[in-house]
């Protein structure tokens, strides 16, 4: 699984990356967490506000830091798909 955190290095982006890492660890899922900081790459997902969370190429949240449970939900959802 590939989890991408979109954001140009703001405080909230770091927080989101940490939440994602924790979610993956607690679920025991094998996942690669990538921070996407280049504007061009970020714009591919057509987000207007960062941080953004992308799981397996699908945008799950933008403009906020989702809670740990929410991120776990996204990961499980992507696993099931």
């Amino acid at each position: 699984m590939k989890i991408e955190v979109l954001g140009m290095g703001c405080a909230k982006c770091k927080k989101l990356a940490a939440v994602a890492a924790q979610a993956v660890q607690e679920l025991g899922v094998e996942a690669e967490i990538v921070k996407v900081e280049a504007v061009k790459e970020i714009m591919k997902y057509n987000v207007l506000s960062t941080p953004g969370l992308v799981v397996d190429g699908q945008l799950k949240a933008a403009g906020r830091v989702p809670s740990l449970d929410e991120v776990k939900g996204f990961v499980k959802q992507a696993q099931g798909a």
């Binding site: 954001g7 140009m8 290095g9 703001c10 405080a11 909230k12 982006c13 504007v39 970020i42 714009m43 057509n46 987000v47 207007l48 506000s49 960062t50 403009g63």
Partner: peptide, 17 residues
């Protein structure tokens, strides 16, 4: 509208887009 200066660039691009 919720706005944070750290997402000024994506917002700018998204609007123009």
């Amino acid at each position: 509208t919720p706005f944070c200066s750290c997402s000024a660039v994506p917002l700018f691009l998204g609007f123009l887009n």
